[in-house]
Design a binder for these strands. Structure first.
Lengths: 225, 225
DNA sequence: GTCTATATGTAGATAGAC
DNA sequence: GTCTATCTACATATAGAC
């Protein structure tokens, strides 16, 4: 952690193809299990079984358990941050200065698209973020992986509400983030609540406009004047 | 669990005063530690130390660890449900049929008041709910402790949006719940983001109207027409 | 009801053969 | 890089004296 990277060995030659596949299988399995039960909800042994490798390989590729957890969270966070910032930049390039709705769209739609098309791993990742956010032990991870990108979006929103206190704007944005995550993790519950029995009857992308409407309306109502 | 209650012994006489105090200390300590690190984040030993009792007493009063966790979550959930339903009933008694804002107020304000006046345990409880919601193992607890009350509020909202699908209404309400919980668990982060260095500069109750504005505006914008 | 001592399991991590 | 075998620590839970 004090060093340049978290990767397992000091790379001397390129890692073999098989090694890379093994490493990916381990990280994917860890992500899935950590998403279900949090850091302590999955043992190194569980992860080894899920990845179909012996336990020692989990330590070899992932390092100690805490380092493995950190790697798993950080890996996808980087991808996500890139999608968010790219969406912002290309929207600006295409349409000039962005209005409130466009900024919210740049935050909400990239993740929902990943979750709708990229399948289960991106949905699991929302649960993982929920675990990280719920547990005080992982504050450093949140601060390092998510806060910088969130700060960019908040900075983007500040000039749109010149009369509002900054913390109100940040508050409304945090409300929007949590609504987005709850949609990803609890769509099944929402639809069950409405009596839509059993399986999810709609894709995440069907909900995108609805969620953006909600957040935009919330911002305008709470920060009006 | 297959029996009438979770309380430790078959009550024959009234439990002694000291016994009740011991039990309360154990449940409070368990709540605090479970809120920080989730079910696995706190060991029975940690709880015993925090409550200043020997380990065996934790088992005696709280039962096995899963039963203890369940008891801790359920205890405050009952209080909360009562506050919610009371707010709804007395608002109806005072003002007749409720509009959207009044219903949201009945859901949001009781919890924020408890957290603002009742101190740290109610704030910790929001973190505990976040853990329960994030972890698939505890779905049965959510369904038993929270879903029935949520269903009452959703039913209250349905006639206010006759043209909207029920699952949209349920969705908007889940967004509102998650925003409320994120306010309780992450107010420090919101204020840090705005540069308000260090300690929380405002009480939770200062945020109540803001949050209600946000949710009301979200509902109206997303379910308009 | 309370506490000490302990039974039994499983956790994370690694040494060392291949 | 991979795998087997194992070390050490700590978890939950309870038996049994007081």
């Amino acid at each position: 952690m004090t060093e340049t990277d978290i990767a397992p060995p000091r790379r001397k030659r390129a890692p073999s193809k098989r090694s890379l596949e093994t490493r990916a299988r381990i990280l994917d399995a860890a992500e899935r299990l950590f998403a279900q039960g949090g850091f302590d909800g999955a043992s190194m042994r569980d992860i080894a079984v899920a990845a179909d490798v012996p336990v020692a390989l989990v330590n070899f590729h992932g390092g100690a358990k805490e380092a493995l957890f950190d790697t798993v969270v950080a890996r996808r966070a980087e991808t996500l941050a890139r999608h968010w910032l790219d969406a912002l930049e290309s929207a600006k390039a295409d349409h000039g200065p962005l209005d409130l709705r466009a900024v919210l769209d740049c935050f909400i739609r990239p993740y929902l698209n990943l979750a709708a098309t990229g399948g289960a791993q991106w949905t699991a990742y929302a649960r993982l973020i929920a675990h990280v956010s719920a547990d005080e032990r992982w504050r450093p991870i949140s601060e390092r992986c998510f806060d910088p990108t969130v700060a960019v979006f908040v900075a983007e929103l500040i000039p749109k509400f010149p009369k509002a206190e900054t913390r109100r704007i940040a508050g409304a944005f945090v409300f929007s983030i949590s609504a987005m995550l709850s949609l990803a993790t609890s769509r099944w519950r929402i639809e069950a609540m409405a009596g839509d029995s059993g399986e999810a009857t709609s894709g995440l992308d069907e909900w995108a406009d609805f969620l953006i409407d909600f957040c935009e309306g919330g911002f305008r109502a709470a920060l009006a004047g």
